[in-house]
Design a protein around this nucleic acid. Sequence first.
DNA 1: TAATCACATTGATCAGGATCAATAAAAAGG
DNA 2: CCTTTTTATTGATCCTGATCAATGTGATTA
Lengths: 249, 249
Amino acid sequence: MVQITNIAPLFKDMAKLEHDYSLACQECSLYRLCLPLGLHHKDLAQLDKIIKRRQSYKRGETLFTTEQSFKSIYVVRSGSFKTTISTSNGRDQVTSFYFPGEFIGLDALYQASYQSNAKALETSSVCEVPFDALQELGKEMPQLQIQLLSRLSKELSGDKSLMLLLGKKTADEKLATFLLSLSKRFSDRGFSASEFQIMMSRGDIANHLGLAVETVSRVFSRLQEEGLITTNGKEISLRDIEKIKTLCL
Amino acid sequence: MVQITNIAPLFKDMAKLEHDYSLACQECSLYRLCLPLGLHHKDLAQLDKIIKRRQSYKRGETLFTTEQSFKSIYVVRSGSFKTTISTSNGRDQVTSFYFPGEFIGLDALYQASYQSNAKALETSSVCEVPFDALQELGKEMPQLQIQLLSRLSKELSGDKSLMLLLGKKTADEKLATFLLSLSKRFSDRGFSASEFQIMMSRGDIANHLGLAVETVSRVFSRLQEEGLITTNGKEISLRDIEKIKTLCL
DNA sequence: TAATCACATTGATCAGGATCAATAAAAAGG
DNA sequence: CCTTTTTATTGATCCTGATCAATGTGATTA
């Protein structure tokens, strides 16, 4: 059996996370969720050197588009992003949402150009990791390569699950699955698993789940009538997680 | 006890293509599509040592299931496979089809167990690549790591495209897109881009595209009436590829 | 603070594709 | 080879979720 990673959740100081964009990997509260996991101290320092800490992006601002050639992968430092791809006639699909510690742009390295458009969902910041430099480092740090492979593999299995959702689940099941996925990710990051603020619009959610906005709205209302959740705009609280789990299938 | 370890060489003359499972990477006709691409000759020899050539699988036979722990990735040598994942209540989704030179099991390395079930669609064979050994080799061959990353990334972008298909395309668009994807993959492998045999059932296709069998059948008939394709069971020929392209969106 | 604009909810109606049903055609198996 | 089983096609009907429409609720800006 090949055991690759053990991303244990935990981080404490929210304030740091939000505001100190220059914070080095060594002191970053995302350490356990991020790329450096498993690196030795001296290797970490080297990784730290190649990472560019970037200014924040405001809601709706673009991180990259399919027009740009691939140079870097991005790790969310604070806030959140969405990626979309489009048909030639302008319909588009929200392929993923990204939270702190998650990698954006991994699907780009094959074609050497970004395969999707990435936009901030709220005021957010990222660490930019130039891929060339990362590969150079990787030659001397197998652990880093493994980390990277592991991330790609994780995204891959997430995508397969979404295929199952898109292809085989009903509207109710889709939304239940989505809410639990958010819950898990918030709780992995030290936030409440049952009460959180969603920063994506109903439209984004609907699009991501292959539904119409109206359907999402109706399912939210129905779940609320049944006492499974409470919503107030962007505030969501899951009142009966166990029951919601049974809805996911 | 007489151990019969390697019978294959005895049959060297029998259709190398299909049946010589012991054929080394150096002589393999899939070279350009496969893992070794870009490796130096001596590195290739080393890679060759860790690869296990496996007996063939018959239609419907299992390559691996979600119950098994992850040890190896598999490269299709001949034939084809499908992978599926399932909901807790038994609905399942065909997540991908795999052709010669393509890698199966890449989504497994994150959780160290296979995330899907892989089955042969016809009499097929694979090369088994033990992941531990591959990682060891990778330490000395950056090119190999890059190849691996590249493959993961490629699968990732394929999956994103499928999300777009599942979430935003109509039945006609789905089937047109699917046919062209097959066409491309056959032509990449030196076969005709316009005439080929599909080895997956209508059910598999329907499931993969998030449709009912009946719908797939009807769309096939409609495309045929419109003179865009000809079908005869598993034989498909694309009569007007340009027009089919316009259907994909 | 009003005015504008983007987003959300709810209702009424519609349609694409699912489901049900029957038959036909291939495979598989004895 | 004939029998049995699986897979494919075609038709009739139904239903989930899309679309259209109207109103409500927040946000942003002047």
